Simulated assay, not measured.
Amino acid sequence: MLIVMAGLPGSGKSSLAEALGRRLAAPVVSVDPIEAAMWRAGVARGQPTGLAAYVVAEAVAGGVLALGQTVIVDAVNAVEAARDQWRSLAGRSGVPMAFIEVVCSDPLVHRRRLEGRSRGIDGFPEPTWEAVERLREEVAP
């Protein structure tokens, strides 16, 4: 099965993905560490590394699915093109897919979570609350 997390940074999706991964003994493929690894490898930040990270995550998730295992994808998945990417992967792989959208309904709690977290992804800056607010306006329904 392909399980795809979606939600704004700081909403709790990575924490839930990790807990679900432990519960199901399923690998979690997270887009942010992939993008950070590209930067550390020398790919310029001005390049479309966000898109590239989604493509790499898709390749890794596809490999896991080919082994007959469940995989969890952890990414914002704010736009329909990203969601279609995962639907297409599930279809090509012949597996069921589930989206799990994570929303923090209390803006004060959400902001506190975001501003208080440090995920320790080498070279990957935590987004600001202002960046999350701008992203919120861009999220496709």
Rank of each mutant, 00 (worst) to 15 (best):
A36G: 07
L114T: 09
R22L: 10
R22Y: 05
G62C: 11
N77R: 03
A59I: 08
G116M: 05
G123L: 02
E126A: 13
E137M: 11
A19D: 11
K13H: 07
G50Y: 08
V132A: 14
R23N: 10
S14Q: 11
A66G: 14
M97Y: 01
I121C: 06
R112M: 10
I34D: 04
A52Q: 12
A41L: 14
W129S: 10
E35R: 15
V29H: 03
R113K: 08
E133K: 13
I100H: 07
R119Y: 07
T128G: 13
V102M: 00
A25P: 03
E130W: 04
V43Y: 15
Q47I: 00
S118K: 09
G63K: 08
E18Y: 09
V71F: 05
E18I: 10
G120C: 09
Q69L: 14
V43A: 08
V73E: 03
V64K: 05
A57F: 08
V64Q: 01
R92L: 13
V29C: 04
R117I: 06
R87A: 03
A98K: 14
M1I: 04
Q47Y: 11
K13V: 10
A78G: 12
I34S: 04
V73M: 02
L67Y: 05
L16Q: 13
A140M: 04
E115D: 12
A82I: 05
V64C: 03
A41P: 04
F99T: 10
V60M: 13
R111S: 09
A37S: 15
M97W: 07
G63Q: 12
A82H: 11
A57H: 03
E101C: 08
V109Q: 01
D84H: 10
A6Q: 12
R112T: 13
G46R: 00
A61P: 09
E101I: 06
I72Y: 08
L65F: 00
G12T: 11
I100W: 09
F99A: 00
S11Q: 05
C104P: 00
Q85D: 02
A52T: 15
R92Q: 14
L89S: 00
E133L: 15
E35T: 13
V109D: 01
G123V: 09
V109H: 04
E126D: 12
V103D: 10
P96D: 13
A75Y: 12
P48D: 08
G94P: 06
A75N: 13
A41T: 06
I100G: 07
M97V: 14
V56T: 15
V71L: 02
S88M: 01
G7M: 07
E130S: 13
R87P: 00
V43D: 03
Y54W: 07
R111Y: 02
L65Y: 03
A44G: 07
G120Q: 09
E126C: 06
S93N: 03
G21S: 04
A90E: 00
